[in-house]
């Protein structure tokens, strides 16, 4: 294992994040704060409790997931797309480093950023709503697993994209709608039966449900099912990346 190479990529990516701290940390934290102000305090006070939880507290796990998912994809896809765009990818491809090590550097840095962001949003939320985390280790596990999975997914998007439009298209047209419809702001039991069944095809439902369980022991689907679904998605991402690296798709001619 070439630890120096992994460290170099990891540190380089983290340094880029700190350089753009306003965009990478403040922006998602402010957006989430606005959600708490609008849905938690202003509208939330007029909405009845859900499963015995105040609406402001109920949306916290969903909002954390919303930010973590979006930022995981954005950070990981940009991290690998940018060197491809500028041409500096030649250096990574000509370095004595395996694909697994490249992945550890880029995805490791992107996942670290997402985890830090998730914790910051949770901390911010605690200023607005009463927060309880009944299973902190499960919460942390879900946070890490989700960050890792969606960073891998973002990495795939970054490899696949051959223009800035493609880089944005999947997060904007697929991930954001899936997250909004995945139970960030409601429980799927509030939907008509038909839409409840449709929602079960949305992988984000399982993420938010599992994550919310770690806070309040309330969920739309069982914790076991949530874990299985996230693990399947993680596995699919790993298989796809393995194929990309094996064939050199969009990396090597």
């Amino acid at each position: 294992m070439n630890l120096h190479s992994i460290k170099a990529i990891y540190n380089f990516e983290m340094a880029r994040w700190w350089r753009t701290v306003g965009q990478s940390i403040l922006s998602p934290v402010i957006s989430t704060t606005l959600y708490f102000v609008v849905f938690g305090s202003a509208i939330g006070s007029r909405i009845a409790e859900i499963d015995g939880i105040s609406y402001g507290s109920f949306i916290v796990p969903g909002l954390v997931m919303l930010a973590v998912l979006t930022e995981s994809i954005s950070n990981a896809s940009f991290g690998i797309y940018f060197p491809k765009f500028t041409g500096s990818i030649y250096e990574v491809l000509s370095a004595p480093i395996s694909y697994v090590e490249i992945l550890l550097g880029y995805v490791g840095a992107a996942a670290t950023k997402s985890i830090i962001l998730g914790i910051m949003i949770l901390t911010t939320a605690s200023f607005f709503v009463p927060l309880q985390i009944q299973h902190p280790f499960v919460m942390l596990f879900f946070l890490v697993l989700t960050s890792l999975t969606f960073c891998l997914f973002g990495f795939i998007i970054g490899l696949w994209a051959d223009g800035f439009e493609k880089l944005q298209i999947i997060p904007a047209l697929i991930i954001t709608p899936l997250t909004f419809l995945g139970g960030s702001f409601y429980t799927i039991s509030m939907l008509p039966p038909f839409w409840q069944k449709v929602s079960l095809f949305n992988p984000v439902v399982y993420l938010i449900s599992g994550f919310r369980w770690s806070f309040y022991e309330k969920s739309d689907v069982s914790l076991k099912l949530s874990l299985i679904m996230v693990s399947i998605f993680l596995l699919v991402c790993i298989i796809l990346i393995r194929w990309i690296f094996k064939t050199g798709y969009r990396l090597k001619n």
Binding site: H4, S5, A8, N11, E91, A95, P96
Partner: peptide, 8 residues
């Protein structure tokens, strides 16, 4: 960065 990337 280049030095680290090449494992040094």
């Amino acid at each position: 960065f280049s030095r680290g990337l090449f494992g040094k």
